[in-house]
Design a protein around this nucleic acid. Structure first.
Length: 425
RNA sequence: GGAGAGAUGGCUGAGUGGUCGAAAGCGGCGGUUUGCUAAACCGUUGUACGGUCAAAAGCUGUACCGAGGGUUCGAAUCCCUCUCUCUCCGCCA
């Protein structure tokens, strides 16, 4: 959520910032609502104040044994007038909140202009895409040759956009996850957490997936529905809900491995083959909770933590700064890390690292006490994949493939694979 | 799944219709005393949203006793729904 004060005081600036994303903010309509809100709120509070003082007088009269009937007569119509005002005000506040909840975050100034992924700006590259003396296979073929990647079984059980991994390949994914968690907890100062995969709506509202992106989420059909988490960012970031941190408690760094569930509504026709885009996938997530003035540096740091994983796996990648039109709803600035996939001969997203500034914190009322002023102030939240395990698995398969269709195991993963050096069927 | 108990400020905990934003204690902060520490004593102590103001401070209004509704002139207190916690029974990895 954008600061409502900023919204009404600097409406034009906000609209200009949002326009960079291609988001049209109807400022005049908002301001008109806001005007009505102000006068109605003043009026309502005045009536409430009047009611309070008169009710108090009735109580005092009764306590003294006086006849309260005349006093009570003077409040008779106050109740109905107040009720009318309150209902109207509540309606109005609801409308305003609805607008505010559907507004994306303000972009940082250094976000490049652009409409979509074509306009994203490459920041740096690491590693060199491998040159094969043979025609590179994609992960689907490699999985087939090895007999370890089974889409037929998956479709029988659950239909499209699921995968079944067998044997050494299933273990390799587990190895990747453990390796990533060990790196982040051992070298990058993150605390590992195990979290619920089913969450309430308010948790998703806190991180910004609701109310706008309900179609992307799976729910249970129960009376009070649970939502399946689309990312561990949701439970991890909600740790900070309704908390006022002491200054010395921050920064906080959390990591978790969870499955992620996405309905991928609207992605029909994209990446239908293989395990690039699935309804269920494994991911190691990084979340940081920091003071407002520390978030810009924290984003660079968090991105570097995710990059470290690919460096250790010796997978070539590049980092791109997302342009204004491609940045996600809650993010003020985002770096995507794209790993080289020989089967596609292109870089594909494997991690997305975002500074959400105070956008989520405001929705969750996540604050810290400013040591100078003693006043609570919103913290900043950041998140990034560190990294997506399913896509890392694909990247390993395709980058470590050999002429005969076998796949070498990256050195850092070998200890997690019982010392094996190649993937065995 | 069944039966019951509960949710009050940073914490413990009192409060069953009126001067209660809320006793008391603990903690925190400030001060007095003190060679230092401790103790004692005194004072102070939440959050949000408004109004006033160029702004801050100040002043001021409203709301908040798990959440949402209701009854009432008036609700922490009574009623309803929901969420969560705890205890016992059952089932269960």
């Amino acid at each position: 959520m954008i600061d409502p004060k900023l919204l009404r005081q600097s409406t034009a600036d906000v609209a200009r910032n949002l326009a960079r994303r291609g988001h049209v903010f109807d400022a005049p309509a908002y301001l008109a609502l806001e005007e009505r809100r102000k006068s109605l709120q003043v009026q309502t509070e005045k009536l409430q104040s009047e009611r309070n003082s008169r009710s108090k007088a009735i109580g005092q009269a009764k306590a003294k044994g006086e006849d309260a009937a005349p006093l009570m007569a003077t409040v008779a119509d106050l109740g109905t007038r107040l009720a009318t005002c309150q209902t109207e005000l509540q309606l109005l506040l609801g409308e305003l909140r609805d607008i505010e909840l559907n507004l994306p975050n303000l972009l940082c100034d250094d976000v490049p202009d652009g409409r979509n992924d074509v306009d994203n700006v490459e920041v740096r590259r690491w590693g060199v895409p491998p040159e094969f003396a043979f025609k590179a296979r994609d992960h689907i073929e490699l999985g087939e040759v090895l007999g370890l990647l089974d889409f037929d079984a998956a479709s029988k059980i659950s239909g499209a956009r699921f995968a079944v991994l067998h044997g050494a390949l299933a273990r390799l994914q587990r190895a990747l996850i453990t390796f990533m968690l060990d790196t982040h907890t051992g070298e990058h100062g993150y605390r590992e957490s195990y979290v619920p995969y089913l969450v309430h709506a308010h948790a998703l509202e806190g991180t910004g997936q609701l109310p706008k992106f309900a179609a992307d989420l799976f729910t249970t059909g129960t009376d009070t529905p649970f939502y399946l988490i689309p990312t561990a960012e949701v439970p991890l970031t909600n740790f900070a809900r309704d908390i006022i941190f002491d200054a010395d408690q921050l920064p906080l760094r959390y990591t978790a491995h969870t499955p992620c569930f996405r309905s991928e509504a609207g992605s029909y026709g994209q990446d239908t083959r293989g395990m690039i885009r699935q309804h269920q996938f494994e991911k190691v997530e990084l979340v940081q909770l920091v003071a407002a003035d520390a978030s810009a540096a924290a984003l660079e740091e968090l991105t570097a933590h995710a990059e470290k994983i690919l460096q250790k796996l010796e997978l070539p990648y590049r980092v791109v700064a997302l342009c204004a039109g491609d940045i996600g709803f809650g993010a003020a600035k985002t770096y995507d890390i794209e790993v080289w996939l020989p089967g596609q001969q292109r870089y594909r997203e494997i991690s997305s690292c975002s500074n959400c500034t105070d956008f989520q914190a405001r929705r969750m009322q996540a604050r810290r006490r400013n040591p100078e002023s003693g006043k609570p102030e919103l913290i900043h939240t950041l998140n990034g994949s560190g990294v997506a395990a399913g896509r890392a698995l694909i990247a390993v398969l395709e980058n470590y493939q050999q002429a005969d269709g076998s796949v070498a195991i990256p050195a850092v993963l070998q200890p997690y694979m019982g010392g094996a050096k190649t993937l065995q069927a």
